[in-house]
Design a protein around this nucleic acid. Structure first.
Lengths: 344, 344
DNA sequence: CTTAGCACTCTCCGATTGAGAGTGCTAATT
DNA sequence: AATTAGCACTCTCAATCGGAGAGTGCTAAG
């Protein structure tokens, strides 16, 4: 598939670049004039014909300029895109924002979304990191009033889940604390499966709490529950690709449908895989809504322990080089932060 | 201001109703044909002239039908809107969703947003409830590794805040638990101000933790940090009022700007106040972006203790009766739930 | 005060037109 | 064999025009 002459590659790159800039079909004359190609427009047109036969570019209509096809973008991203290095000033500014602020994912995740959106001028998505293996870390029972007890459950990895329990019987804070401590010793670092396998207790209080703990751990197992941070919606509202001309078919709809998003995230086999950064171009036949869009995703965190997804969604006509670099950079940054603050 | 004849009120109501339905200017003939008014179109036109002089309706251009003005909608909402009662089937369905699911705000809030969005076919906003007075409830220190400690802070009202502390010196879980218990006894139910007023401890560990606690309590004081749940974006993407024709001026932009949102929420003096539900029509001169939109808001929770905001944002042309009822219903529902599970 | 009647105005839609952009093809050149 | 100049051709886009239709405002009669 790499059997393009170097001149054809240059021309394809230029078409992609120019079309990204102007959103217009690219004329042969534009290329030689604006980019100073040392050949004539007729030659460019001949090459364009070849590229069109290969399905990499197309004409919106006879006698118009050329536009990259989905395939064309794919070829470009796989073979031609040059990773831009973010200017060190930009990198420093971004890092600084993360390291100066209070430590904690609750700040970092929205911040990551914000940075991604601003840098890429697209929509950004960041999911909260999620443990591969759910395991118990710490339990706390806090008496509130009447039969109500606030249960705070900390999982390995640092995920915190809370629930209000309505107990069958009133217990003092004294008893609750003792029970919690007892369970803390018994369960520490045990996985969901291990806890499930333990034989049930006779104590009704323990039984009730155990049920709640298992409930919460099961919930935490589902990706669906994880928090999702979005930003940059306003960046794309005005672009034609996101306009809701085609009623109800706007790509933004995807962002509100958790099942679809999880599907998107869990798609491990993506067509383009650039050093951990995955590029999904034009919905890859699966997502109608993304026909004119691209998604750039990466996983961050710690392999097999605590990881999340982060990426951007923008028009297919997108500065891929910069976008990929930005996603990678922010991903690496978050990975470092997560590693530093891992609860184990 | 209520000095309209009853016939004028009927005509205004019908114009509002019809325009809400069709989004088109309303002709005099339409009113008598579709709504069976026992008068002629000429009479209707005369009345329309009066209404136009009062600034309640206007013509987009000479010889077109009439459209309600901002003032017209305001008059309608203040004087004419009839609160529809949600069908009991609908009410039951909604209640059921809340009461069947696991108890906990983390489920209820997104659910409320989803219900509001579906019912109103507009964008919904729900903020997490927030304590008026920040006060300490419970502290937990969990040793993780090295110098790192996970601090979990429960505030009165049930808000949970977590932070990872990097201590100066390594302490065992033993010491941490003792310290936490000690602070729990000393601080229980104390407000931020009271804790600030206490004289500092000599223990360096306590000092460091106290700093973190106060930091977190201060953060919790800012509305800005509260979580915000949105839903129903796709409901309005295709409506002209939300289209980003006027670049960067889409009402949806507001939803990404926390300062603006807080401003909106904190605006206590709203022009229309219907039994706790506030209706903001056309941005009220303050929000340019909302020129063609309306916001229906209400506060839920427990007065002076733990409360949040919830509401919808839709086109000015909106079925106010139903929208107001829905907002009120969901607000009351959440208030009940919050009251039931209050941490005190 | 209400209404029938009618002229008037303004929008909307389709058809028409001309200019301009950009191509494809052919024949000449390197 | 590859490149290029030249030119006719095609298609879009924007502007213009005109007629149909919707809806009003006004006047005069009931």
């Amino acid at each position: 598939m790499t059997d393009l002459t170097s001149r054809q590659k240059i021309i394809l790159s230029l078409i992609v670049h120019e079309h990204t800039r102007t959103a217009q079909p690219v004329a042969s004359k534009t290329l030689i004039e604006d980019y100073g190609l040392p050949i004539s427009s007729a030659t460019v047109r001949n090459e364009m014909n070849t590229l069109a036969e290969l399905g990499l570019i197309r004409q919106p209509h006879t006698s118009a300029g050329r536009v990259p096809t989905e395939e064309g973008y794919r070829f470009f991203v796989s073979n031609l895109v040059q990773q831009t290095v973010l200017p060190s000033a930009t990198r420093n500014t971004i890092s600084h924002q993360f390291y100066q602020s209070r430590r904690g994912l609750d700040h970092w995740l929205p911040l990551a979304a914000s940075v991604l959106a601003n840098q890429s001028q697209a929509v950004s998505l960041v999911t909260a990191p999620h443990s591969e293996k759910i395991a118990f870390k710490h339990l706390e029972l806090i008496s509130t009033r009447g039969l109500q007890v606030l249960m705070v459950l900390v999982l390995l990895g640092g995920e915190i889940r809370q629930q209000i329990l309505a107990l069958d019987e009133a217990y003092g804070q004294e008893v609750l604390s003792r029970t919690a401590n007892h369970l803390n010793q018994e369960f520490e670092n045990k996985s969901l499966r291990q806890i499930e396998a333990l034989e049930p207790s006779n104590d009704p209080l323990v039984q009730q709490i155990l049920t709640a703990i298992l409930d919460q751990m099961h919930l935490s197992e589902d990706l669906v529950t994880g928090e999702l941070f979005l930003d940059g919606l306003s960046n794309v509202l005005s672009t034609p690709e996101f306009a809701a001309t085609n009623q109800e078919r706007s790509p933004l709809r995807l962002l509100e449908e958790r099942p679809m998003l999880n599907d998107l995230f869990s798609r491990t086999v993506l067509t383009e895989d650039i050093g951990g950064v995955q590029v999904l171009i034009g919905g890859e036949g699966t997502w109608q809504e993304l026909r004119d869009c691209s998604v750039i995703l990466t996983r961050y965190g710690i392999q097999d322990q605590l990881s999340g997804m982060l990426g951007i969604l923008g028009p297919m006509r997108m500065p891929y080089g910069q976008a990929i670099s930005t996603v990678r950079f922010v991903g690496d940054l978050l990975s470092d932060l997560v590693t530093d603050t891992l609860i184990e």
